[in-house]
């Protein structure tokens, strides 16, 4: 399985360089600008990292790797697991990159951790929805569905941000407001200065959300394995 992940990383090498460059630029803008924009920039690199396993599947399709790979000492289950693991590794790398930039620029780390943790959860949810679809239909046919799945939360976030901006009275912190909208669980923070207690409550909600997304990812993995087991090459 390690060999498969190495293969994917080699395949994704160009994207990874781009990913690091974009990650750094966006994080810098986010931290320097010190507004809610920062969070959505981090979001972008994390979502980018969730996309890469799908790109890896499309590389495999193009090279017809699976037909060859399955003759090697790697089971079908491991072949699928490698893609999920790749997603987790890349998301973790994206999160670390965000933290590094955040630290470097002395951003508010509590806020940072909250946002990154939640976005990691969103990444896991993305992968959970996308990978079974991609295994079932192939990357070519799944493209439109993928686009919809990716755009939908962005539109929601944007709508949320817009709503937040409109309800802002001078001096209100927007990030907490955004977080509230994004996590859904604590959506009802409206224009009030967030207290420390509230943040920890928020953090707990986010942790639960991310934990749940990991569970969903495991279920998704089992579904993908059962789809992949039936495939012929």
């Amino acid at each position: 399985m390690k060999g498969l992940i190495i293969k994917d990383l080699y395949n994704l090498r160009k994207q990874l360089v781009l990913y690091i460059i974009i990650g750094v630029i966006y994080s810098v803008i986010g931290v320097v600008a010190k507004d809610s924009g920062g969070s959505s920039f981090i979001g972008l690199i994390l979502i980018f990292s969730a996309m890469l396993p799908i790109t890896a599947v499309s590389y495999d399709e193009r090279a017809k790797w699976d037909k060859y790979g399955l003759t090697m000492p790697v089971s079908r289950r491991e072949t699928v697991a490698a893609k999920y693991l790749l997603g987790v590794i890349l998301t973790a790398a994206g999160a670390l990159l965000s933290f590094a930039v955040g630290l470097l620029f002395g951003a508010d780390m509590t806020e940072y951790v909250a946002v990154v943790t939640m976005l990691a959860g969103i990444c896991f949810l993305y992968l959970s929805v996308l990978l079974p679809i991609v295994y079932k239909m192939g990357t070519e046919k799944a493209r439109f569905i993928m686009l919809a799945v990716i755009l939908l939360p962005f539109l929601l976030i944007m709508a949320g941000a817009l709503y937040a901006k409109n309800s802002v009275i001078g001096g209100t912190k927007i990030p907490e407001n955004m977080l509230g909208n994004m996590s859904g669980a604590t959506a009802e923070i409206s224009g009030v200065q967030a207290e420390a207690g509230m943040i920890s409550e928020l953090m707990a909600g986010i942790l639960i959300f991310t934990a749940v997304s990991l569970v969903i990812m495991y279920i998704s993995y089992r579904i993908s394995v059962s789809i992949y087991r039936r495939k012929e090459f």
């Binding site: 390690k2 060999g3 190495i6 293969k7 080699y10 090498r13 193009r62 790797w65 037909k67 000492p73």
Partner: peptide, 21 residues
């Protein structure tokens, strides 16, 4: 046909296979 990823070089392919076999 060979089904190796087109962008990889020999050394990289060996590294992948050495981690599989």
């Amino acid at each position: 046909e060979s089904f190796f990823p087109e962008n990889m070089k020999l050394r990289e392919i060996e590294r992948v296979l050495a981690n599989i076999y």
